[in-house]
Write a protein that binds this DNA or RNA. Sequence first.
DNA 1: GCGGTATAGTTTCATTTGTAACCATCTTGA
DNA 2: TCAAGATGGTTACAAATGAAACTATACCGC
Lengths: 161, 161
Amino acid sequence: MASEATARQKALEDAIELEHFLPYRLSRLTNTVSNAIAELYRDSFGLSIPDWRVLAVLARFPDSSAQDLVTRTRMDKVAVSRSVARLVERELVNRSIDSNDRRLSRLSLSDGGVEVYRRIVPMARDCEARLLESLSAKQRQALDDVLMALQAAADELTATS
Amino acid sequence: MASEATARQKALEDAIELEHFLPYRLSRLTNTVSNAIAELYRDSFGLSIPDWRVLAVLARFPDSSAQDLVTRTRMDKVAVSRSVARLVERELVNRSIDSNDRRLSRLSLSDGGVEVYRRIVPMARDCEARLLESLSAKQRQALDDVLMALQAAADELTATS
DNA sequence: GCGGTATAGTTTCATTTGTAACCATCTTGA
DNA sequence: TCAAGATGGTTACAAATGAAACTATACCGC
């Protein structure tokens, strides 16, 4: 009885203050940001975030294969496949087959895709700018370093387990 | 023709380097971390991340109502409802009805819930520690500040739109 | 060349998640 | 006191997501 009460007490003393728990804070921040952005893309162009990511990578790396997209975005290959299908359907992306390896798609933005991309970029930049405005120059640099280090550590996490 | 080529050129010059785009980096980091943690909780205790969050909040704030959980975690109320249902089903959480307002649930960890919680806490802490290990003391402080500022800015984002 | 294996990409199906409708209870104000 | 909201919570349905199976092509060793 007393020991049960003690155990319970100990649990509470050890209690994680969720609001200071890094993974939780990260997740909350990301959700807030992602939802804001998702709304933007969806309302303006009917694009989901995965769609937008594919678009953005193709803008930078034309003639990527689906596999290239997977590697670059770290999205699931099914997600990539679906986004590409949607974008091709909407004629924002052109798909052709690699002449050397018929398994590979060659994906690029169509003119329409480039146009959509050009119109989204300022919105994306604006969104990012509004976030960064809240930071000093020093903090921005720190953020950059920290994100890099954390991503590396997080990759270690998954590798180790 | 030339102008089309020029437009396309311009788009590429403006291209967002996704890998430096803050929302993207955040999302990628969070996904990596969340997936690692989700695996941990799921494999060890069959808990999803939402389940764990509810558990953690109840450890700190016993006798919360479902609405309290929504407020504290910023989870969707449906998600909370579902997690609570699962946890009650598994007898990790006790649910009773508030005597003053029969709409309200009063939720607390059962002894079993406390036990599970106690066993998870070190794992969660360890995970967090491994992430933070990659940072200097200075960087950790900076991270704290930056996360706070960014969350505030992100909340502004959604409020403004 | 030919069987075995690896890779690219899609489809299928089960699970998760979110939105909206819903029911029960409480509060307010005529 | 009772009608009209407001609030707490669940249910039902639709959309997004993920894991695994599948198809098609390519490579590798013999």
